[in-house]
C-alpha cells in the first residue's frame, strides 16, 4: 500500500467523521466545522487516490485548489447567515421553535 493510498483512506475516515458530526450536532457552527472537516477529507481522497500509481498528476491539485476557494466562499456565506440569524432570533440551532408562526413571505 502506497503512502498516497494511506492519505486517501485517512480522507475517507475524515469524511465519515465529518459526515457524522454534520448530521448529529445541533449547534450551527459545529455543523459548519464538521462540514469543513468533510471537505478536507474529500480533498485528501481526491489527491491521494489519484496519485497512488506514482505519477504526479497536476489535475487533482488544481481541483483541490479550486475546491478550497469554493469551500471558503461557502463557509463565509454560512457564517454571515448564521450570525445574522443569531442576532435576529437568539438561537444557535435550527430545530428550536420550528412550530412558531412565521410571518408571510
Amino acid at each position: 500500500m502506497s503512502v498516497s493510498l494511506l492519505y486517501a483512506f485517512a480522507g475517507v475516515a475524515l469524511c465519515a467523521m465529518g459526515g457524522l458530526g454534520f448530521t448529529v450536532l445541533e449547534h450551527l457552527l459545529r455543523k459548519l466545522l464538521a462540514f469543513n472537516l468533510m471537505g478536507s477529507g474529500v480533498f485528501l481522497v481526491l489527491v491521494g487516490l489519484a496519485q497512488h500509481r506514482g505519477v504526479p498528476d497536476p489535475v487533482p491539485q488544481a481541483m483541490v485548489l479550486t475546491g478550497i476557494v469554493v469551500t471558503i466562499a461557502a463557509t463565509a456565506l454560512a457564517v454571515v447567515l448564521m450570525r445574522r440569524y443569531y442576532h435576529l432570533s437568539g438561537q444557535t440551532g435550527l430545530v428550536v421553535c420550528e412550530e412558531r408562526k412565521e410571518p408571510m413571505e
Binding site: 486517501a8 481522497v45 481526491l46 456565506l77 454560512a78 447567515l81 440569524y85
Partner: peptide, 30 residues
Amino acid sequence: VGALRAAIRYLLAALLGSLAYLLGVALIYG
C-alpha cells in the same frame, strides 16, 4: 428569521450534497 432559517437549512443541505458529489468525482477520477 424564517427566511434565514430556511436559507441556512438549504445551505447545509446543498453543501452536503456538493461534497458527496465531489467525493464521487474523486473516486471516479482515482
